[in-house]
Design a protein around this nucleic acid. Structure first.
Lengths: 192, 192, 192, 192
DNA sequence: CATGAATGAGTGTTCATTCAT
DNA sequence: CATGAATGAACACTCATTCAT
């Protein structure tokens, strides 16, 4: 195994450990030493990969956000019809939020907390452009409501996070029927 | 001023300070000493009103949640038509989230974070019953979609939180026109 | 009930509470507030009867020591023969240590700990004079060994404390036969 | 110097500092910070060697007790005659109590105080067995009084602690003549 | 690259003491 | 005399970070 990939392994272990521990305890209640232990390395070694704790979190956030975005646009192609394209993206996001629960919860915690600094937040937002583009196209085609993309996001994408939360707390179970129902509600709320 | 009301003042100052500081720094990054200072009392005094830091947060959460619920059902009466009742409640919630930003942000942080213990979470949920009742009535009258209340909540109420977030980060401004638009989208997503 | 005796009651309650709590937790692990609570009064009230915590302990020590000494010389009279006098005193002390366990344990803790200041220690020692006098008389009569009174005390009186300790920890039970045995050993060790 | 021996140094410095400070101030009046300072290390470092303050005290107690026991049976051999064996042990103990005053005082404070937990107390008692065995042998040989070992201990060994106390408070000086006197009194009190 | 012992500033919490009532 | 709310200094303990190995 190459030196880089060994280093890569450690980095990945750190990222995974950070996600899990922050999910369970929150940022400030997860010590670097625990992250190191769960990653199977020494505390001092963290600082070979990340500047400090804040930087570690920021990096993890950016990476998880990127992985989320990649997932969201998997198999999506720009020539899709607006409806088909939206369905693809929406369902990708739903699958991510409901299956990659650890990562989704981590993002949810980061997005509602002062634990990430503003530059990293901005960085994390970059990748949603294709969805915004799709909506603009839809609006031009007279298919999507003429409202701010924030509004579209709030009523079609954001609700998934709530459903994930409920499922996570075992208050609600989302079968695939429910997911279809939900998709219909989402599409319904943004289409004209 | 009576002894009790003096105590009440201090307690309220503590609650206010906790909300503001936790909003800005997160639970684990707001020391008791800072809370005390902002409340204008001595650190030791906190422990006359709250058992410990965890208990302080739990209590504040429960109180803010209660105040939110009170606000949500202000001027609402059970004999209202389903549509009128929903509008009243939805707009109350919107006003709360957009005007009482401090409290709304605090709830948002608590709800996506392991900082509140489970019993307090349960306690905070109690008060939404009238909305659930309204939805059942609507479903019986054939006005509201036959889906789980979690779904109805996710698509009609939860989006408000996102809009608040965006407004708070100054990424988006919600005029009253926007609020009306949003209300229409909300109602649209749950009505048959 | 007169004002003084009401005050006296509180003072006594404080003394009793102090003894019990210090026995169980040690001086520095018994807060004034607990002493007050056990005495059935308010923390502030302690300071009407004692200057501060150190003074409280010192006073309690002196009083318990005095009560111990009184007990030690109960029914003792100076015209007793040396042997009879010693027996009386020794057995008084034994009864005190084995029956007034709370007070005896308190003294034992004070005597082996830096919790009492030196003046109070001296004060507490005053009262043993009659025993010393008896020993001097015994030495003049050729009955008692010609050694320092510290030595006499160490081998005849001090052992009782050990037996009390063992009984207190339920490692050993002292029947009256054992007490007689012990007395014989004590007398044996100091008599010529 | 090896890493372990450096650690050992720190641990020993901590133990020494604890003994000295607890002797002077009592357990609850000696802050961890002072112990650290006297040991020449940082407060946080204590917790690399001991779990917490209670554990620190317990360990120190157990170690000092073990060192005391080792000393007590130095050069003692089981084939010694009962009298010779007892003399050896008694004098060892006397030397320990009169020369290793810090350690002896520490034990004395621990034994009369609720500062040590019960398991550690039990642990500390283990090592006296050879003395008990010697006494049983002596009783079988008709040399030692037929009384409980607690009684034998109380009248022959325990008095040394009192003499140490007095010497420590500079109330009494124990010359080697006095020690011989004392030994005779001790042997006298347990032999038939 | 990696370690992990060591640091020391910072945290939650306690408690002797005061003082307005 | 008595109260008990309020204080704030002091404490035990934690943890991000460093650095000699």
């Amino acid at each position: 195994m190459s030196a880089t990939s060994k280093g890569q392994n450690k980095r990945e272990a750190l990222v995974k450990a950070t996600i899990k521990l922050v999910n369970n305890n929150g940022f400030h209640a997860t010590p670097m030493s625990k992250i190191a232990k769960m990653a199977g390395i020494s505390p001092g070694t963290i600082y070979l990969y990340f500047e400090n704790k804040q930087n570690l979190i920021n990096q993890v956030y950016i990476e998880v956000k990127a992985s989320f975005s990649d997932f969201a646009f998997m198999d999506y192609e720009e020539h899709f019809s607006v409806e088909k394209g939206f369905e693809k993206i929406w369902k990708n996001i739903a699958v991510f939020k409901l299956k990659e629960v650890e990562e989704a919860m981590f993002l949810s915690q980061c997005d509602n907390t002062p634990m990430i600094d503003e530059p990293s937040r901005k960085e994390g937002l970059k990748h949603l452009q294709p969805l915004l583009d799709l909506w603009v196209r839809g609006q031009n085609e007279g298919i999507i409501k003429q409202v701010s993309p924030y509004m579209l996001y709030a009523f079609s994408i954001y609700p998934i996070a709530f459903l994930m939360n409920m499922q996570q707390r075992e208050l609600y179970e989302l079968s695939s029927t429910h997911v279809d129902e939900a998709y219909k509600m989402a599409w319904n709320s943004i289409k004209i």
